[in-house]
Nucleic acid binder design. Structure first.
Lengths: 255, 255
DNA sequence: CCCTGTGAAGTGTTTCACAGCA
DNA sequence: TGCTGTGAAACACTTCACAGGG
């Protein structure tokens, strides 16, 4: 899921729909796999299956990039890999800084797929002085005090925040002040950033909650959200007339 | 972002839009923070700001749950916390199993926010025999051979996959066979699952690529995706007439 | 004849703007 | 009067279905 809109009204001719952009990496991955197997061409149907989408959507997506296929044949794998890479800006190098080297930060630093295409872990930053100098994934951790310099020196424009939630906004502000304009936030916090800065968030607990929502419905088929637990239902203020659709609740608070 | 649609055509009266469901956890988090500060009521405007959305959207979202507010006043914090928790199925306990205890799996096992609301790490599973018995985050890692039994014994219906990509589909199949019906996939792979099973994916490299796309456009303002790098542009097969919208490419492949 | 590229229709989501209740 | 709840308009995204080129 994404946050931080800051994009043009998309009324621009060269505007690629956001939903399409979000799928390009998926196509690219599937294409890369085909490329490694030296498959020369692929049809929209095959590629769509490999990417987990339907072929009409894939063709429509590609149509925003241009007419890169050959009717009656399909798409040239290498050519498409190049075009999508270029469109995504992966033909250039993106130095990334990870701030907050705890369990998660370290895991990301070690994550191979990170460097997969164009991305390079340029710096690891942590607020704990004791960590300074410690190598994680072969890179020495640096102290937050030097954040500004580190960002500038390495030309970092993409920052990854893996700090505790309480520190996230502050770190974010410092990153932005230092010149970062794209942030990937793993902390469970809503970040506020100035116009022009993009923020995307990855939130484990949100994903789990969404799964729980659907899971719950599977269990109680046809008896949707039922407040079936005998737990104490809280309530306050002056709620006189409530009209929950049906799965209403016990009306008055005990405690 | 999510994959694995398997939901009703949403033509059901009690159907809450998927986009709304995805935001409920956000509202819940903001409400929980207010609750901890003992704030009794909140307006759609305030809550929307705290959750990082606009108030019209928030009110529309809440309208799908029922009429839980009070005109002229706002929403009762405790009451809303309860209603949203119930709607998301968080008033019950969800045992979760994490498969693949590498850097990321261990980080997730240690992640506090995991147990935040209703979720409990019930089991850690890994294919490495050497890891069996090792405690991670206070829980002994168990071997994949016992996956079936572990899932059944603990009544796990939500599984988290943090294995290398090559093992993901196989692990997924086994989880599903053992009774898991919701999967959170961190492996960069497209999982195929039977009808009725939900899959959501979290993919670091996809998020970075999306950021890179926008980042690139910021740099070259008004000169969108320009293939400005002198790099070797690959091409194959028999591409005679290409018509990329404009950011076309050098036409013939060197290597 | 096969498979791409794309208008047009269909569906879902967001935003607007205001009626209506506390 | 202030703020919720919601039709209706605007917008975004997906799917259909088929024209048209190789």
């Amino acid at each position: 899921m994404a946050t931080g809109r800051t994009h043009r009204p998309a009324t621009r001719s060269r505007g690629i729909p956001e939903a399409t952009v979000a799928r390009l990496p998926l196509y690219l991955r599937a294409l890369t796999a085909l490329s490694e197997r030296s498959v020369p061409t692929v049809s929209s149907e095959e590629l769509a299956t490999a990417a987990g989408v339907n072929s009409a959507k894939l063709r429509k997506d590609f149509s925003y990039l241009g007419s890169y296929g050959t009717r009656g044949v399909g798409y040239d794998v290498e050519y498409l890999v190049y075009q999508i890479s270029r469109e995504l800006g992966l033909t250039q190098d993106w130095p990334v800084a990870i701030v907050g080297i705890g369990n998660l930060g370290a895991a990301l630093a070690n994550y191979g797929g990170f460097a997969s295409r164009g991305f390079r872990v340029a710096a690891l930053i942590d607020a704990d002085p004791a960590m300074a100098g410690t190598p994680v994934a072969g890179i020495a951790v640096q102290h937050t005090d030097d954040l500004d310099r580190i960002i500038s020196d390495n030309g970092v424009s993409i920052g990854v925040i893996t700090t505790p939630p309480g520190a996230a906004q502050q770190v974010c502000d410092r990153l932005v002040a230092a010149g970062v304009t794209s942030i990937l936030n793993f902390a469970p916090t809503v970040l506020s950033v100035p116009e022009g800065v993009d923020v995307r968030k990855v939130d484990l607990s949100i994903e789990l909650q969404i799964l729980a929502f659907h899971e719950q419905r599977k269990a109680g088929e046809d008896a949707p959200p039922e407040g079936d637990d005998p737990e104490a239902p809280p309530m306050r203020a002056t709620p006189a007339s409530r009209k929950g659709p049906d799965g209403d609740m016990p009306a008055v608070m005990p405690a």
